[in-house]
Simulated scan of single mutants.
Amino acid sequence: MVERSRAARTVKDAEDARDELRAALKGAGVTLPSLALDGVSLVGDFPRPLVDLGRCTPETARRLAGALRGDVR
């Protein structure tokens, strides 16, 4: 039961990280439509969740690169 609780906290932490990234990207004017948790990384008794950035258009990739560089658009 303790392990299940630990696994749930691990997944919740990954969800929180995903949501934090989504909010920060939105603040920079960037939306990654496929931003999600990687389903395969969630299986098993000891999940090791990964945030999957997914796919985006070239325009979105450029906006993300600009946001990381600190460009103002």
Rank of each mutant, 00 (worst) to 15 (best):
residue 32 L to M: 00
residue 56 C to L: 10
residue 64 L to A: 13
residue 15 E to S: 11
residue 20 E to I: 02
residue 14 A to Y: 12
residue 40 V to P: 02
residue 38 D to C: 01
residue 39 G to F: 04
residue 34 S to I: 04
residue 50 L to A: 02
residue 26 K to S: 06
residue 43 V to F: 01
residue 4 R to D: 12
residue 11 V to W: 12
residue 68 L to C: 09
residue 37 L to D: 15
residue 46 F to D: 11
residue 5 S to I: 15
residue 8 A to G: 00
residue 43 V to H: 04
residue 19 D to M: 06
residue 11 V to D: 09
residue 62 R to T: 12
residue 37 L to T: 12
residue 57 T to V: 09
residue 28 A to R: 08
residue 6 R to Q: 04
residue 23 A to H: 07
residue 18 R to C: 03
residue 23 A to E: 11
residue 9 R to D: 11
residue 16 D to L: 13
residue 26 K to I: 02
residue 7 A to Q: 07
residue 40 V to E: 11
residue 5 S to L: 15
residue 20 E to Y: 08
residue 69 R to E: 07
residue 53 L to S: 02
residue 34 S to D: 15
residue 70 G to P: 13
residue 7 A to G: 07
residue 11 V to N: 12
residue 10 T to G: 06
residue 34 S to V: 09
residue 9 R to G: 01
residue 37 L to G: 13
residue 42 L to K: 15
residue 4 R to A: 11
residue 73 R to D: 10
residue 37 L to P: 15
residue 23 A to W: 05
residue 28 A to M: 07
residue 34 S to A: 15
residue 52 D to Y: 00
residue 7 A to I: 09
residue 62 R to E: 15
residue 19 D to Q: 08
residue 33 P to D: 03
residue 72 V to E: 14
residue 6 R to G: 00
residue 27 G to K: 04
residue 56 C to S: 15
residue 63 R to V: 05
residue 24 A to K: 11
residue 33 P to W: 04
residue 56 C to P: 02
residue 63 R to F: 08
residue 38 D to N: 14
residue 30 V to R: 00
residue 53 L to H: 06
residue 62 R to D: 14
residue 57 T to A: 14
residue 54 G to Y: 00
residue 73 R to W: 07
residue 26 K to F: 07
residue 10 T to Y: 02
residue 23 A to Y: 04
residue 14 A to N: 13
residue 7 A to F: 02
residue 20 E to V: 05
residue 12 K to I: 10
residue 21 L to N: 03
residue 16 D to Q: 13
residue 6 R to V: 08
residue 36 A to I: 05
residue 42 L to G: 13
